[in-house]
Protein backbone atom coordinates (compact mmCIF):
# COMPACT_ATOMS: atom_id res chain seq x y z
CA UNK A 1 0.00 0.00 0.00
CA UNK A 2 3.07 2.24 0.14
CA UNK A 3 2.59 3.33 -3.47
CA UNK A 4 -0.74 4.88 -2.51
CA UNK A 5 1.14 7.34 -0.28
CA UNK A 6 -1.28 7.12 2.64
CA UNK A 7 -1.27 9.70 5.42
CA UNK A 8 -3.19 9.51 8.69
CA UNK A 9 -5.66 12.35 7.87
CA UNK A 10 -6.49 10.93 4.40
CA UNK A 11 -6.83 7.41 5.86
CA UNK A 12 -9.30 8.75 8.45
CA UNK A 13 -11.18 10.68 5.73
CA UNK A 14 -11.49 7.68 3.37
CA UNK A 15 -12.40 5.33 6.25
CA UNK A 16 -15.12 7.76 7.36
CA UNK A 17 -16.60 7.85 3.84
CA UNK A 18 -16.54 4.04 3.58
CA UNK A 19 -18.03 3.71 7.07
CA UNK A 20 -20.87 6.04 6.03
CA UNK A 21 -21.53 3.97 2.89
CA UNK A 22 -21.50 0.73 4.91
CA UNK A 23 -23.89 2.26 7.45
CA UNK A 24 -26.20 3.37 4.64
CA UNK A 25 -26.19 -0.17 3.23
CA UNK A 26 -27.13 -1.62 6.63
CA UNK A 27 -29.81 1.04 7.17
CA UNK A 28 -31.23 0.29 3.73
CA UNK A 29 -31.55 -3.36 4.68
CA UNK A 30 -33.16 -2.66 8.06
CA UNK A 31 -35.19 0.46 7.19
CA UNK A 32 -35.67 0.67 3.38
CA UNK A 33 -35.56 4.28 2.22
CA UNK A 34 -38.64 6.18 1.11
CA UNK A 35 -38.70 9.05 -1.42
CA UNK A 36 -39.57 12.29 0.35
CA UNK A 37 -39.53 16.03 -0.15
CA UNK A 38 -38.17 18.19 2.66
CA UNK A 39 -35.88 21.22 2.64
CA UNK A 40 -34.57 20.40 -0.82
CA UNK A 41 -36.72 21.29 -3.84
CA UNK A 42 -36.53 17.71 -5.15
CA UNK A 43 -37.70 14.32 -3.91
CA UNK A 44 -34.75 12.44 -2.43
CA UNK A 45 -33.84 9.10 -0.92
CA UNK A 46 -31.53 8.75 2.07
CA UNK A 47 -28.62 8.01 -0.30
CA UNK A 48 -29.38 11.11 -2.40
CA UNK A 49 -29.29 13.28 0.72
CA UNK A 50 -25.96 11.79 1.82
CA UNK A 51 -24.51 12.33 -1.67
CA UNK A 52 -25.75 15.95 -1.82
CA UNK A 53 -24.52 16.53 1.73
CA UNK A 54 -21.03 15.16 1.04
CA UNK A 55 -20.70 17.02 -2.27
CA UNK A 56 -21.81 20.35 -0.79
CA UNK A 57 -19.53 19.75 2.21
CA UNK A 58 -16.63 19.46 -0.23
CA UNK A 59 -17.55 22.85 -1.67
CA UNK A 60 -17.99 24.39 1.80
CA UNK A 61 -14.37 23.40 2.49
CA UNK A 62 -13.18 24.77 -0.86
CA UNK A 63 -14.95 28.10 -0.34
CA UNK A 64 -13.55 28.28 3.17
CA UNK A 65 -10.03 27.75 1.84
CA UNK A 66 -10.52 30.31 -0.92
CA UNK A 67 -12.13 32.95 1.29
CA UNK A 68 -10.15 32.73 4.53
CA UNK A 69 -6.44 32.97 5.20
CA UNK A 70 -6.13 32.49 8.94
CA UNK A 71 -9.28 30.73 10.13
CA UNK A 72 -8.90 27.02 10.84
CA UNK A 73 -10.48 24.52 8.50
CA UNK A 74 -12.06 22.86 11.55
CA UNK A 75 -14.77 25.54 11.36
CA UNK A 76 -15.60 24.47 7.80
CA UNK A 77 -15.76 20.86 8.96
CA UNK A 78 -18.10 21.82 11.81
CA UNK A 79 -20.40 23.76 9.45
CA UNK A 80 -20.34 20.82 7.03
CA UNK A 81 -21.20 18.31 9.77
CA UNK A 82 -24.12 20.50 10.87
CA UNK A 83 -25.27 20.91 7.25
CA UNK A 84 -25.00 17.15 6.60
CA UNK A 85 -27.00 16.31 9.73
CA UNK A 86 -29.69 18.89 8.81
CA UNK A 87 -29.90 17.52 5.28
CA UNK A 88 -30.18 13.90 6.41
CA UNK A 89 -32.86 14.72 8.98
CA UNK A 90 -34.95 17.40 7.21
CA UNK A 91 -33.68 17.44 3.62
Amino acid sequence: MGWMAWTLPTAIFCSAVFAMLALMAVLEKVYPTVLRKGLLPIETTRGDRLFIGLLTSGFIHLFWLAATEELSLVWASAISALWLATLLRWG
Binding site: M4, A5, T7, T10, L73
Partner: peptide, 25 residues
Amino acid sequence: MTVINYSVQDIFGPENRYFVGMEWF
Protein backbone atom coordinates in the same frame (compact mmCIF):
# COMPACT_ATOMS: atom_id res chain seq x y z
CA MET B 1 -7.89 7.62 -3.14
CA THR B 2 -4.26 7.84 -4.34
CA VAL B 3 -4.95 11.27 -5.81
CA ILE B 4 -6.51 12.33 -2.49
CA ASN B 5 -3.35 11.16 -0.71
CA TYR B 6 -1.07 13.01 -3.14
CA SER B 7 -3.11 16.21 -2.81
CA VAL B 8 -1.99 16.76 0.78
CA GLN B 9 1.70 16.00 0.24
CA ASP B 10 4.74 17.49 -1.45
CA ILE B 11 6.06 14.62 -3.55
CA PHE B 12 9.74 14.50 -4.50
CA GLY B 13 9.93 10.75 -5.05
CA PRO B 14 8.32 7.48 -3.93
CA GLU B 15 9.97 7.55 -0.50
CA ASN B 16 10.51 11.29 -0.33
CA ARG B 17 7.28 13.11 0.46
CA TYR B 18 6.07 15.58 3.08
CA PHE B 19 2.63 16.28 4.49
CA VAL B 20 1.53 19.85 3.68
CA GLY B 21 -2.14 19.73 4.69
CA MET B 22 -4.47 21.80 2.50
CA GLU B 23 -1.68 24.04 1.20
CA TRP B 24 -2.02 22.93 -2.44
CA PHE B 25 -5.78 23.49 -2.41
